[in-house]
């Protein structure tokens, strides 16, 4: 974990370790992502995908390792975590919308309170974002009154509204019907085309293959295999990866 990161990398994770009690969830995880790239994390349930994304967002205190965002180690306790987080967007597997706020207020909360954008401007931006995810007509609704897929799209709008440098997406399509999966994936593809840097955990191998620049296969807290989708998904070197992929295919 001592070798320096590629100077152009937006995010560089080296030797990351995270445990809950005696359960080592992430062990010596390293990955790098250049601006505008899209990295897909794949792996079985419980392999540590969500935990990795939460560590990158500084929601978990890591046991060891370096997380460099634009060349600066953000795992360092001297770093202002709020400031770092305001530069990233994260969409949780369980959405985590605020049930006491309307859809629009969920989206405008951070621009108004963190970035001090005036209300009118924040609402204009948020409405644009909601239109983009096809939910402008639900702006006044409460999250509880929305379907799972609609909540998921609000969560994406909420993460996107601040134009983050890095977008973390945790299984954003797992709760959606195939039609909506297509819609959300199209949205992500557009974002990708606009140069948004993203790390996403996914079970959609097709999406990983078509959109991601690289795929990381996580198994029991380690990155067993990483590389371009054609290599990792098309011609996996590890027995475990082959096993995982063949189970998915069948």
């Amino acid at each position: 974990m001592s070798e320096p990161s590629t100077p152009t990398a937006l995010l560089s994770v080296r030797g990351l370790r995270k445990s809950f009690g005696s359960n080592v969830v992430l062990n010596d995880v390293s990955l790098e992502i250049e601006p505008g790239q899209c990295v897909a994390l794949i792996g079985a349930s419980g392999s540590g995908k969500s935990t990795l994304l939460r560590c990158i967002n500084l929601l978990e205190q890591v046991d060891d390792g370096v997380i460099e965002l634009a060349g600066r180690d953000i795992a360092d306790p001297r770093v202002d975590a709020d400031q770092v987080r305001s530069r990233m967007g994260i969409v949780f597997q369980a959405y985590n919308l605020f049930p006491h706020l309307s859809v629009l207020d969920n989206v405008t909360l951070a621009p108004r309170r963190v970035h001090k954008v005036a209300r009118a401007e924040a609402e204009k931006r948020s409405m644009t974002m909601l239109e983009r995810v096809g939910l402008a007509d639900k702006a006044k609704a409460r999250p509880d009154d929305l379907s799972g897929g609609q909540q998921q799209r609000v969560a994406i709008a909420r993460a996107m509204v601040n134009s983050p440098e890095l977008l973390l997406l945790d299984e954003v399509t797992s709760a959606l019907d195939p039609e909506l999966v297509g819609e959300v994936l199209d949205l992500l593809r557009d974002l990708r085309a606009e140069g948004m840097t993203m790390i996403l955990s996914t079970h959609e191998m097709g999406f990983a293959r078509n959109v991601a620049d690289s795929v990381c296969f996580l198994d029991a807290g380690r990155i067993l295999e990483a590389g371009p989708p054609a290599e990792v998904l098309g011609d996996p070197q590890q027995e475990r990866t082959r096993q995982f992929l063949s189970r998915l295919a069948s």
């Binding site: 390293s30 046991d63 060891d64 390792g65 360092d76 690289s214 807290g221 990155i223 067993l224 990483a226």
Partner: peptide, 28 residues
């Protein structure tokens, strides 16, 4: 592009490897 660790032959079991915090972590 992401760099995984050097692939090891068998899937490693994290729990049976001794681990000691790195210099960076000790300093933190």
């Amino acid at each position: 592009m992401p760099l995984g660790p050097a692939p090891s032959a068998s899937p490693p079991d994290p729990s049976d490897e001794p681990w000691s915090p790195s210099q960076t972590e000790l300093e933190r």
